[in-house]
């Protein structure tokens, strides 16, 4: 197959998580031709991507990229090139561009792909979660036209970059169409300390925490363990913590070494974003909470009492 991976570097560095795309492509066999289309980021990092061919749209700064100009650029890029499969990672721009492009070009589209199953002359089968990740489905996709997929984030081991350098063909980032929205202002809420998607340890709170003050304890524990703060939708909606800390289907997708939850029930939509953590530890007062079905260690306790004991104990041993 002729495969295109699409990498969006919203910051100047190479978007590490986009390297999951190559691990996914590995599942499809070793005889494929792989091209990469890269938006933004440092050119030096890009030449090492595991691709036979690289196309690169350099940008002045990360703010120059938006869904509308990436969509326009891809539309133009694809006007004289044909791929069997176009693979996106999950990020703000891809979440917009991947489906929009599929409608514009009349390509098939499948988001959150987790696994390749099989392929024959007429169709290719993939697995993706459905119903807020409470179930999975096998989908068959017609291969007579190009297929766009977006992979399920944090589902693949990040592949080492290949050593041989590929040729990098520069392309131009197109101006967005008139008929699109224009960004007037961007405000990023950067949390202090370690970032949620980079942390090895994440301390996460849900409705069971019960108050904004309760999150102070979580914050203290996160600082002690050099971790980041996560939250469920119930906690975010109660405004105990900003949306940027949301973990789950509609929030961040993370796979830290330790995901330590307090007062989170374990709804499938929340688990979606953290299920690939190496170790999940849950504190919940309800022994039947479904979070326990996915945890390595569980503690049945009042989470606000328990966290104080944990903080004290960590201080004792440090």
């Amino acid at each position: 197959m002729n495969i295109l991976s699409v990498i969006i570097n919203e910051n100047d560095d190479l978007n590490e998580s986009s390297l999951e795309i190559f691990s996914f492509i590995d599942q499809l066999g070793s005889t494929n031709k792989i091209s990469s289309l890269v938006f933004g980021g440092e050119k030096s990092a890009i030449s090492k991507l595991c691709s036979d061919e690289i196309f690169y749209a350099s940008v002045e700064n990360s703010e120059a990229l938006n869904p509308n100009n990436v969509l326009k650029t891809m539309d133009k890029f694809l006007s004289d090139k044909k791929f069997d499969l176009i693979v996106f990672q999950k990020d703000d721009i891809s979440n917009f561009v991947a489906p929009a492009l599929s409608f514009r070009k009349d390509f098939a589209y499948l988001p959150d792909v987790k696994k390749f199953v099989s392929k024959n002359e007429s169709e290719i089968k993939f697995v993706r979660p459905v119903h807020g990740e409470s179930a999975e489905a096998i989908y068959s996709v017609d291969i007579s036209s190009t297929i766009i997929i977006k992979i399920r984030k944090s589902s693949f081991e990040i592949k080492q970059l290949s050593k041989q350098n590929s040729i990098v063909n520069e392309i131009i980032l197109e101006e967005q169409d008139e008929n699109t929205f224009k960004i007037l202002e961007t405000e990023k809420v950067k949390s202090e300390g370690i970032q949620l998607d980079e942390a090895e340890i994440v301390i996460s709170g849900g409705r069971g925490i019960g108050s904004k003050e309760g999150f102070d304890n979580l914050k203290e524990l996160a600082e002690l363990l050099n971790g980041a703060l996560g939250a469920s939708r119930a906690a975010v909606e109660s405004e105990w913590i900003e949306t940027s800390h949301l973990v789950g289907l509609t929030g961040k997708w993370i796979s830290p070494n330790l995901y330590f939850t307090f007062g989170i029930s374990g709804a499938s939509q929340h688990l979606a974003g953290c299920i690939n953590s190496k170790n999940i530890v849950a504190v919940n007062k309800d022994p039947d909470a479904s979070i326990f079905n996915h945890s390595k260690f569980g503690v049945i306790a009042d989470c606000n009492d328990f966290i104080k004991e944990v903080i004290e104990e960590i201080k004792n041993i440090q």
């Binding site: 098939a108 589209y109 499948l110 089968k125 459905v130 179930a135 999975e136 489905a137 096998i138 989908y139 068959s140 996709v141 017609d142 036209s145 297929i147």
Partner: peptide, 8 residues
């Protein structure tokens, strides 16, 4: 173009 074969 896209069909569900099986859910589980």
């Amino acid at each position: 173009k896209v069909k569900i074969e099986e859910i589980y």
